[in-house]
């Protein structure tokens, strides 16, 4: 990139200085995530470069991520919990966001504060509160308990995302639908939902990630046999680090890349649908 000829030396120095600094910070952000992935293909049990050989045994070997029973059952449980919590959180959250988007609701700020409180309260406090509550109601160590806990933690993300989408939603479209004879639910499914769908899906993805990554609450309320993927990783790091953890981390990184791309595409589509030009 050619710099304008009128720039002084100081300006040139700060121009390049800024670029070098920013480059270094971006490298700092991405490097740890990228550095971990090749290590998962190491043929030996240590974590430094250069690697003596290439191997996929941490994925498909005896203790591999996709083949070892501990890891596959953890993955399975995580997926079940996350899917269930996402469905619940998305339904509840979208309904609430629709209600909140109507103007002049008395006490809107207070309601909002309650609805997003699971995001605000430090997770350790939520975990202990839920532990006592579940001990009392007999939900500790049950699948339903974990799903409910994850639903509570995930709904704020759905509420916030869908509320934001609804802010730029043109409400006259709903009236148009109603004036053409559409019953409220018809208007919702034929007019509103298609338009806010990108926002709803983003919210659902946020909810999924929240549940899929959650590690503290499960440590408190999960029974000894209920090992979700994060819990399995956590105990793995605490006890004895095996390279399978790098394999698990790599799989999750690929997965989050996929989610990032999806959310980004959805955001653009949503803005196009609602006629916002950037």
């Amino acid at each position: 990139m050619a710099l304008p000829p009128y720039m002084t030396t100081t300006e040139k120095v700060s121009h390049y200085g800024l670029r070098i600094f920013v480059g270094a910070v971006l490298l700092f952000l991405i490097a740890p995530i990228l550095a971990i992935m090749p290590l998962s293909f190491n043929s030996e049990t240590f974590f430094s470069y250069p690697m003596p050989g290439f191997s996929t045994k941490w994925y498909f070997g005896e203790t591999g991520f996709f083949t070892n029973e501990r890891w596959t059952s953890a993955l399975k449980l995580s997926v079940i919990v996350a899917v269930a919590a996402t469905i619940l959180a998305t339904c509840l959250g979208t309904l609430a966001a629709l209600g909140l988007s109507r103007s002049n609701i008395p006490g809107r700020a207070a309601i909002m504060a309650v609805l997003i409180s699971p995001m605000i309260v430090p997770v350790i406090i939520s975990a202990i509160g839920l532990f006592f509550f579940y001990a009392y109601t007999g939900l500790n160590g049950t699948l339903i308990g974990i799903i409910l806990a994850h639903t509570a933690l995930a709904t704020p993300f759905v509420v916030i995302t869908v509320t934001a989408t609804l802010m730029s939603f043109d409400r006259t479209l709903m009236r148009a639908g109603a004036s053409l004879g559409g019953a409220p639910h018809t208007v919702f499914f034929k007019v509103v939902l298609p338009l806010i769908l990108p926002g709803v899906i983003s919210g659902a993805l946020f909810a999924f990630v929240t549940s899929f990554d959650e590690v503290i609450v499960i440590l408190f309320i999960g029974g000894p046999e209920q090992r979700t993927l994060p819990r399995q990783m956590f105990s793995g790091i605490r006890e004895l680090i095996s390279p399978t953890i790098t394999a698990a981390a790599s799989v999750l990184i690929v997965f989050s890349t996929f989610l990032l791309v999806t959310v980004e595409l959805l955001r653009r589509r949503g803005e196009r649908l609602r006629g916002i030009r950037s």
Binding site: L26, L29, I30, P32, I33, A35, I36, L39, F47, S48, V209, F212, D213, V215, P230, M233, F234, I237, I241, I245, T246, A249, L252, I253, S256, T257, L259, L260, V263, E264
Partner: peptide, 22 residues
């Protein structure tokens, strides 16, 4: 470069640092 770490789970990033800092 900013969003990928943002979307990667906290535990994965902590794991990465645990391994890299040995």
């Amino acid at each position: 470069f900013v969003l990928l770490p943002f979307w990667t789970s906290l535990l994965v990033r902590t794991t990465a640092w645990t391994i890299l800092l040995q």
